[in-house]
Design a protein around this nucleic acid. Sequence first.
DNA 1: GTATGTGAACCACTTCACAGCA
DNA 2: TGCTGTGAAGTGGTTCACATAC
Lengths: 212, 212
Amino acid sequence: MPIEIPEVVIERLPVYARALADLEAQGREVVSSQELGEKLGVTPAQIRKDLSYFGRFGKQGRGYNVRRLSEHLRHILGLDRTWDMVLIGVGPLGQAILHYGGFAPQGFRVVEAFDASPAVIGRTIGGIVVRDVRDLKQRLAERKVDIGIVAVPAAVAQEVIDTLVECGIKAILNYAPIAAQVPPGVHIRRVDPVLELQSMTYYLKSQDGAAK
Amino acid sequence: MPIEIPEVVIERLPVYARALADLEAQGREVVSSQELGEKLGVTPAQIRKDLSYFGRFGKQGRGYNVRRLSEHLRHILGLDRTWDMVLIGVGPLGQAILHYGGFAPQGFRVVEAFDASPAVIGRTIGGIVVRDVRDLKQRLAERKVDIGIVAVPAAVAQEVIDTLVECGIKAILNYAPIAAQVPPGVHIRRVDPVLELQSMTYYLKSQDGAAK
DNA sequence: GTATGTGAACCACTTCACAGCA
DNA sequence: TGCTGTGAAGTGGTTCACATAC
């Protein structure tokens, strides 16, 4: 692939891909950047520019073939395969993740789960046997996984993340409320509803003082 | 308040606030933008510039008083009060949210919960009585809440969000996998782990093809 | 006629670099 | 001397606007 593609662009592609999957399910054959943009709250120019990093998928005067573009995006993002994930932390949050039905249909499956507590080690949750986190490194040496999910308390999250990195994991989904450090080449995304709430309150506060 | 403050800045403030709370708990009295930046993976200049939108909180040659800056940020963000939230959707995800212990310590409490299914309506979960979503508008007219949490299936999420907006809700945390549309003045943030995963796979895929 | 693809113009955010203050 | 606060410079991303193709 040629030059560096902005990370914001990569983050928008799954949004496009999802919208296209919806359109496909509805039986739509063609969509314009205009219409797609309206659905997603993005400008048409944004969509066209984003797609142009990867090729020319549209037909002038017509728009984009939904199925074709959908498949292209899925391929670009690597969504046309299955990704194996390891979960660290099987407390209430981790258990909810194991039971969550939203990953599998998208090709993401948890294949290993670890915890430090004897209360859960050995139990089978969501079809996965919970193992002792002390066996993590050894186990991951045998059974390669692609992605790590961190659902441990904040106090030990960085330590767990360091271990995952040592195991060669290159992508981490972090549910722990910390600003985790990872070396270059390792990708990390945080899922942190409290942070989302805490930035929205800024605007709520302003509104109370002014209008409304 | 003077000119428009970039939204990215607002989104970073809670991160700073959290780090400062940690330092405070550790008994630290002073911190430099340098040190804070290292902890958070942000440049010192970024932190100083961000803070400068709101005032002058530091002392040249010394740094920032941890407690003082922490309190300022909490006040700026409106974290020095409690925020009432309404949850829509009490399926597995919604129940996990009701049981989640991470909101309350930060001043966010779910005070109302609604669902459409007779299986949960009337039940008490996490101390909250689940009500019929058909009573949502009426109930919110009596009992004002600040924030809406949407944990319903994608198919009905936009409809629920529209209702919340009609009720005068100005901030929404959306767990449903849709690109929701809200009118100007309403703030919405999404919590969408699948989207996070789907953008990371782009990089995993590239690496497989190249190095590693 | 209509909608894409894309250089160029624009805008916003980040980083620099240094004056100013403790 | 050390670190903040901040205009100015730099960078990166978005939007424009139009040539191009169907």
